[in-house]
Nucleic acid binder design. Structure first.
Lengths: 146, 146
DNA sequence: TTGTCTGCAAACTATTTGCACCGAG
DNA sequence: CTCGGTGCAAATAGTTTGCAGACAA
């Protein structure tokens, strides 16, 4: 598990400690392999061990973000989502406002757009935090049927 | 003021009423000519008339969104921003995580990207709600100087 | 042992809602 | 006159924080 190693190394380097709670949060993020709210992560951690507090989950997620192992994004429903930057590294997400689905889009695919914004505005796009709202194929088809 | 007319027409059509509070919120949005938080809008409305409640501001903003005269977006600081869709219509925003600046980008400019997502994923991008996080030119230059 | 981390509870903040009165149509 | 809209206050919901005790190193 390369990301756990990276995590432990960074913890050591900066004088932080490796606690079972931190391991559990990281493991849960690994299982999920996608976005999740703090509460969803909390629920899964609870399945493994009760008496882990939601505030610890938040604190761990903050730490993981400082280490660039996780990115967070705000959807319009007011719940922040957290994504583990796994082996694939930074990528963007299409977010369906209809069914709520999040669809991953590789950084490669976003690249032309990133370069365009760079050229036109000197703006450096943060691909890992890019959320693209809209309507997914399934929902569009469902809509056309009616 | 074309958008006020559009507003009044839609109000009438749907049996809603035109109140001074609703006019004030719309006027403030007009003055601002850009994004603003509910609280910022509330403050400006207060300058014109005290005893207008923040809940009325929220309710009016919701109404304006239903009428497609305003779009809202969530930035990572947990405060929702509201933008009046003026004469220019829907457009996207570059958001600098460094200085907080919001830079408008026309729908035309986003068009190639929209078509790409359409072709590759059948996903219909909602240009008006698209927030593109990153670092703006000024902040990048400031960073390079150090 | 030492100082970080945790659980608990309380605080915060942005937003939403219930309700009785007010006022636009 | 009617009933949609408002101000007020209280409720929510997600997230953050203070603190005393727990535990990794």
């Amino acid at each position: 598990m390369a990301c756990e190693e990276a995590f432990i190394r960074q913890l050591r380097e900066r004088g932080f400690r490796l606690t079972p709670q931190r391991e559990m949060v990281l493991n849960v993020l690994h299982e999920i392999e996608g976005y999740a709210t703090a509460d969803e992560i909390y629920q899964r951690v609870q399945e493994i061990s009760t008496s882990v507090d939601i505030s610890t989950v938040y604190r761990t997620l903050e730490l993981l973000q400082e280490f660039d192992l996780v990115v967070s994004m705000d959807l319009e429903d007011g719940q922040r989502r957290y994504v583990l930057l796994g082996v694939h590294g930074a990528h963007s997400h299409l977010q369906c406002r209809c069914c709520g689905a999040l669809i991953g889009v590789s950084a490669d695919e976003i690249e032309p757009f990133v370069e365009q914004m760079q050229a036109a505005h000197g703006f450096e796009v943060d691909v890992g935090h890019l959320m693209i709202p809209g309507v997914c194929q399934e929902c569009r088809e469902a809509r056309e049927d009616s």
